[in-house]
Simulated assay, not measured.
Amino acid sequence: MNDDCVVSATPSTQALHYRNFTPADIPTAHALSMTFNWPHRPEDWQFAVEQGTGFVAAENSVVIGTALCWKYGTDRGSLGLVIVSPEHQGRGIGRKLMELVLEELGPRITFLHATPAGRPLYEKLGFNVCDSLDQYQGNVGETLPVTLPDDERLRPATITDSPALIELATRASGLERKTMVSALLEKGETVVLERDSEIIGFSILRRFGRGQVIGPVVAMRSRDDLRAKALIGYWLNGREGQFIRIDVPCGASLADWLVAQGPKCVDTTVKMVRNAPAVAHRGAPDPVYRLYGLISQAMF
């Protein structure tokens, strides 16, 4: 789109216009998200903007709405951080912002996680529910040990691990992850799971919101999701009393294990898809490697 899209049909919209999101908009976007008690820090907004693109709605030069999107490879994308200030809702601003990001993404198969308030609009724009996730967060309590088989071990990641981690993340998510995982490896701490010198899983811990977030978490499938538990438990151990968040796609058997260590399920959110049948995107996309923890609900 052009840098500015002006809407000036009536007095109520006379000063309303839409433009590209810039880094200078981060303080106002952060303030908007705080209005809805979202946990994002300015640094979290900055990371999201650096990895993607987006648009704002501004009235009298004041940002009153945002929407961001991210492109993965040539045919996938996601969107999120769609916010309209409470005082300006009901004027079609959210729909217009959504139309702008969907125009930016074009025919890509596009995913989002929907709040109950946003879901009706997304359905009107062609999205259908394909899955769900559970959001866990809270202070870590007494941690439970996880015993791996003798031929498997956890170790800190090294720079030479990057290609393998990118491949695993791409397989487990169904999204091209080179740029995103490379950025996360610089931003957070990473542990890998090795079996006979082969990497079969990894997880990343980084600062986010009220504390720290664990994600992505990728592991080769195992009985009772033991490998995923080991990759998550690595970060829980020694962090008693600290605030941790993890967003877990449906289908993993982590619920009781996570709750026993402090984090509670505080929300269940639907995943939606556009430009593809919902049935084609239900469940995990890879039969061997599974995504057990998301980067974020917006960037997956």
Rank of each mutant, 00 (worst) to 15 (best):
V146L: 08
L112A: 07
Y234L: 06
G92A: 02
K124I: 04
C265D: 00
V49K: 06
P42W: 04
S33D: 11
E99R: 12
G293M: 04
M34T: 15
G65H: 10
A24L: 07
E198G: 01
E176L: 08
D151H: 13
N37P: 00
A280M: 06
G80V: 09
G80F: 03
K178T: 14
P42Q: 07
P11K: 11
D247R: 01
T268M: 04
I64G: 03
Q261K: 01
L102G: 09
G126F: 05
R76F: 08
W38C: 08
D150V: 15
V84S: 03
T179Y: 05
E59L: 10
L79K: 08
S253T: 12
D224M: 14
H30F: 14
P116C: 04
L32C: 05
R274Y: 06
G188E: 07
A15G: 10
A260I: 00
I83Y: 08
T147V: 14
N237S: 13
D267I: 04
M299E: 11
E50R: 15
G215N: 03
V49W: 13
F55E: 06
S33T: 14
V270M: 06
M98S: 15
P42N: 04
P86H: 05
L294R: 10
E123M: 03
K271Y: 00
T158K: 06
E87D: 10
P249A: 05
D256H: 13
E87I: 00
E198F: 09
R153A: 15
R282D: 04
V146N: 07
L254C: 06
